[in-house]
């Protein structure tokens, strides 16, 4: 099991045919994003159609897991009772290395809140949650 940062009692993601490979890879502790096999454009979150060339065919490309902090919000209000002892926590928008600027919303964990800045180098970590769900989060590199 991985290190734990968040409680299991969080909203769980919908998983459907278009998104399942993302979560299957995360369970293997691999970070993948969709890449259009026709035009090569990366995209995230997973969607059924390439908005650039309208191809449905897609490959799931493993990325380095490194990136930079693009934007963030330090959440102070525990929107759920089970988050009361988890605040403040950081919701992060991370620009993923090697993806043409593709961004992913996740969390930044184990970070110095006073040192948050755009461009901060980060890398992926994985948190194994209950019920076979694994979520990628990020930590300062």
């Amino acid at each position: 099991m991985s290190e734990r940062w968040f409680p299991d009692a969080m909203p769980r993601p919908a998983v459907d045919a278009d998104t399942a490979p993302f979560f299957e890879a995360a369970a293997r502790h691999q970070l993948v994003v969709q890449r259009c096999t026709a035009c090569g454009a990366h995209r995230h979150p997973p969607r059924p159609l390439c908005p650039h060339c309208h191809a449905f065919d897609v490959a799931w490309e493993q990325v380095s897991g490194r990136g930079t902090l693009f934007s963030w919000s330090v959440v102070h209000q525990p929107f759920l009772p089970q988050l009361a002892d988890k605040v403040p926590f950081v919701v992060a928008v991370v620009e993923l290395e090697g993806t043409g600027g593709t961004r992913m919303t996740s969390n930044l964990v184990d970070a110095d809140l006073a040192a948050l800045a755009a461009g901060l180098a980060v890398e992926v970590v994985f948190e194994d949650m209950a019920g076979g769900l694994t979520l990628p989060r990020f930590t300062p590199a």
Binding site: F6, M10, P11, R12, P13, A14, V15, D16, D18, T19, H44, P45, P46, V75, F79, L80, L83, F89, V91, M104, T105, S106, N107, L135, R137
Partner: peptide, 18 residues
């Protein structure tokens, strides 16, 4: 939950975008 019908929320709500 209702979240599970929202494909886009699936990539934000689990991270605390609540």
């Amino acid at each position: 939950t209702a979240l599970e019908t929202e494909a886009l929320a699936a990539f934000s709500a689990p991270y605390g975008v609540l």
